[in-house]
Design a protein around this nucleic acid. Structure first.
Lengths: 110, 110
DNA sequence: TTTATTGTTTTATGGATGTCGAACAATGCG
DNA sequence: CGCATTGTTCGACATCCATAAAACAATAAA
């Protein structure tokens, strides 16, 4: 299999992170990841978009340095790079996630 | 003159705010606004882009609910909606601004 | 009134983006 | 081996976006 390309700590940028989080689908995915606090296969998180679209979003999150993805068997496991982001941009992700949780009454279908 | 349209407190969204801040030019402008802590005419803040481009960015920031703009004479004065954003998304803007300040060695020309 | 200042609007353009279906790849299972 | 599962990749498409030049609007200053 092809191992995924991840940005290093130094390559992560603030604007890149903000842009990645500015999409509702991606923000919701990150939010779910954060609450579960463990690696998740993409399929384990409900999304309102097609498989291929989700794959695209996952790549954006990965290239922004927000998530780390590794493959195990047929499924790819995704985890938050929480510690690194906190180290680089203290308080940002935490505040955003808290705000997202407070803002969203939450609804998913399928 | 035409008074500017501003979103109400309820109309401000997290993704809208993140998207508005995800552009380097806009983030830099907001950062400058925050450090000066007072109304500023657009021209008082150095930008690397054309006037018309900056006008566009200002509109994005305004429509996202991040800044408030009023006209006085020929110039339009811009101020941060700091208290409102803090009330709606506690800690978000503060953390982002702090991260931006830490990340940017800062350079402007013209 | 003429000119300067300040910023907006319009129009154009090249590039990025979100979306999806279909085809493909890799692994696991029978 | 054949089939199912899980994602990725590849067009394709419509939309949004950052940029800027040019024209316009409104006020201030001479």
């Amino acid at each position: 299999m092809k191992p995924y390309q991840h940005p290093t700590f130094d390559q992560i940028t603030l604007t890149g992170l903000l842009h990645a989080l500015s999409d509702p689908v991606r923000l919701n995915f990150v939010q779910c990841l954060a609450t579960k606090m463990c690696e998740q296969p993409c399929g384990a998180i409900p999304t309102p978009v097609a498989k291929s679209t989700m794959s695209h979003h996952l790549r954006v999150l990965r290239e922004a340095g927000i998530v780390r993805i590794r493959t195990e068997g047929t499924q790819s496991l995704t985890s938050l790079r929480l510690a690194e982001i906190e180290a680089k941009f203290p308080g940002v992700l935490e505040a955003v996630l808290k705000a997202a949780e407070a803002e969203k009454p939450l609804e998913q279908h399928s």
